[in-house]
């Protein structure tokens, strides 16, 4: 097996960092959205559901471009964040995190929503009659019972974030050491003469990581389910 170059290692490390941070931010957001969709009754629910799932069907480059327009330094949100808080996403690794969260959100929300919907409402009612308010019931009943789905969603989201390419390269470009993730590094290598070996090796790495995350997701979900029964 060919040796990995320092640049390749840096891309792998960056991908891990981006995917980990994206998962940490994405899971709580996804859980809140999933709860809203699973248990809430409000006008515009179908629309919210559609917006969350949009990145799944749009060309990733469109999502990335939308992020650039909104969160870029001149974008309405980006300019505000820059001026008020000095937060900049464009062409930074943190922007790669944002792109990964947006792209991974649909699958995380879907996994968590399914498991929240599987929680027996009658248990939540019983919790209420015992004196627990809605928030307490959520943290003591709904959340622990949907933990398998949350873990599965987190690992799937991590895998998705690890492999994100289109939205990332559009939003934050392909800057070595800052925004060059595994996927961008493979793209660069494949466009470079004599880069085939590196592209192939990194592709193998991506495949192994993705597969590992999928297997882990399945095992975690199974184990969590087993602990409950």
């Amino acid at each position: 097996m060919p040796e990995l170059s320092p640049a390749a290692w840096s891309a792998i490390a960056l991908s891990f960092k981006v995917a980990a941070v994206a998962t940490l931010w994405g899971v709580p957001v996804a859980t809140a959205l999933a709860l809203l969709l699973a248990r809430g009754h409000f006008p515009g629910k179908a629309l919210l559901d559609g917006i969350i799932h949009l990145p799944l069907v749009l060309p990733p480059v469109v999502t990335g471009y939308a992020l650039l327009l909104l969160l870029g330094r001149k974008g309405p949100i980006g300019a505000f964040l820059d001026q008020q808080f000095g937060i900049v996403f464009a062409f930074r690794w943190t922007g790669a995190v944002v792109a990964a969260v947006v792209m991974a959100l649909p699958i995380i929300v879907r996994a968590i929503r399914l498991s929240i919907e599987a929680v027996d409402v009658r248990l939540e009612q019983a919790s209420g009659t015992l004196g627990a308010g809605r928030l307490a019931t959520f943290f003591l009943v709904t959340l622990p019972l949907s933990l398998p789905g949350i873990l599965a969603g987190a690992t799937l989201g991590f895998a998705k974030a690890l492999g994100e390419f289109g939205a990332t390269i559009t939003f934050v470009s392909n800057i070595p050491g800052e925004t060059r993730t595994i996927a961008s590094a493979i793209y660069t290598a494949s466009q470079t003469p004599d880069g085939d070996a590196e592209a192939l090796t990194l592709s193998a790495v991506a495949a192994v990581l993705g597969l590992a995350a999928l297997v882990a997701s399945e095992l975690l979900a199974r184990r969590a389910r087993g602990a409950l029964s």
Binding site: Q125, A126, G128, T129, G131, G133, T137, L140, L228
Partner: peptide, 17 residues
Amino acid sequence: HRRRIGVVFQEARLLPH
């Protein structure tokens, strides 16, 4: 949750976790 009325349902509805 503010009524302080206990309910025993037909099914026990114990919290499984």
